[in-house]
Simulated scan of single mutants.
Amino acid sequence: MKQIMKGLLLIAVILTGSTAASTADIQVFTADNSKGEITPATIEAAFKKAGFYISANRDMNGPFKKQFKESTFDVYNLFTFFSKEITLELVKKYPNIGLFAPMSMSIYTKKGEKTISVSSLTPEAMAKIMQIPVDNKALAKVGKMVKEALKLALPGGSFETLPYTVQKPTGPLVSSYHTELDEEDLNTAKEDFQMEFEGELASNGFVMAGFNALGDDFEKKNFNEYDFYDVYSICKLPVIYTVAKVHPEAGAFAPCSLIMYKKKNEKEMHLAFPSVYNWISSMDIKDKASLDVLLEAQKSMNKILLELTE
């Protein structure tokens, strides 16, 4: 496979004005659950009813206890979902919509508490990260669908006011790479690249939490502008375990969606993922333990992709 690195594109979103933004990037919806009737399964059913495709609904408490011998939660699930119809609508103009197809949520109950909470990104935050107009109607529709699903899933719930403000990011919000693939045998070149990539994930402590071949969905709807468009859902257990202790709402960013696509009229394959600087700025993360695992994960993923695209 011919791999020629064409360069590393780092997309930096600079917040103007003061050092902090006025609007929260993460929304946390919480409801009383003293009767235990609301579960990750009932929440999943509500999101399906609202029109979302569910990629995964993973119980993380088991892995937490297995690897770290403890958990500070009675419930902690990472939930990934997206609207196939709206994703198709958006990708026609914004190829990086796969950064949030699927979107991520955390479903959690802190140990001993009688409430259940769901965290997710606001449409405004997704627009900021993808650098698309904040008033995009399709993205606003997704936001409305999420709120309706939350109200259905968590009766009597309400949005919390988080005890921090969004800070100016200290690094690029999206890390992007591109490389050329062998056009004469594109399928084999792609498969070889992905096999090597997945091997590097495992050897660097990352878990492939999901995979969506969005390009197949596009073709079924007669949209054929891509040779392929794949999305990896990637997680690193020490990252979410460490950060969630202080910020359980961190599941709004985990697992991370890494896009890998090639347009038919281009020679290059594009790869991109939201960087950990989103976590740090959106949740005003300051504790050393969280910063250390986040920055190490960013460094590791950059190293993997840089070496593969050389």
Rank of each mutant, 00 (worst) to 15 (best):
M5E: 07
M5L: 04
L8P: 01
V13H: 11
L15T: 05
S22E: 07
F29C: 01
N33V: 08
G36Q: 07
T42I: 02
I43H: 03
I43K: 02
A46Y: 00
Y53Q: 04
I54Q: 02
R58T: 11
M60E: 12
Q67K: 10
T72F: 06
F73Q: 03
L78P: 12
L78R: 11
L78D: 00
S83I: 08
F100K: 01
F100W: 12
A101Y: 04
M103T: 14
Y108F: 15
K110Q: 12
S120R: 10
L121N: 09
T122A: 05
P123N: 10
A125I: 03
M126N: 03
M145R: 04
L152S: 13
A153N: 05
L154M: 00
Y164T: 02
Q167G: 04
G171S: 11
L173W: 10
L173G: 01
E183Q: 14
N187A: 15
T188Y: 14
D192C: 04
D192H: 06
Q194M: 15
F197V: 06
S203R: 15
G205W: 12
G205L: 07
F206M: 09
F206I: 11
F206A: 13
A213S: 14
L214K: 07
D216P: 04
D217R: 05
N224G: 12
S233A: 15
I234P: 01
I234M: 11
A244D: 12
K245S: 06
H247L: 01
E249G: 03
A250L: 00
K267H: 15
H270E: 10
L271R: 01
L271S: 02
K286Y: 03
K286G: 00
D287N: 14
A289V: 05
V293F: 07
V293E: 06
M301F: 15
K303Y: 08
L305P: 08
L308I: 06
T309V: 13
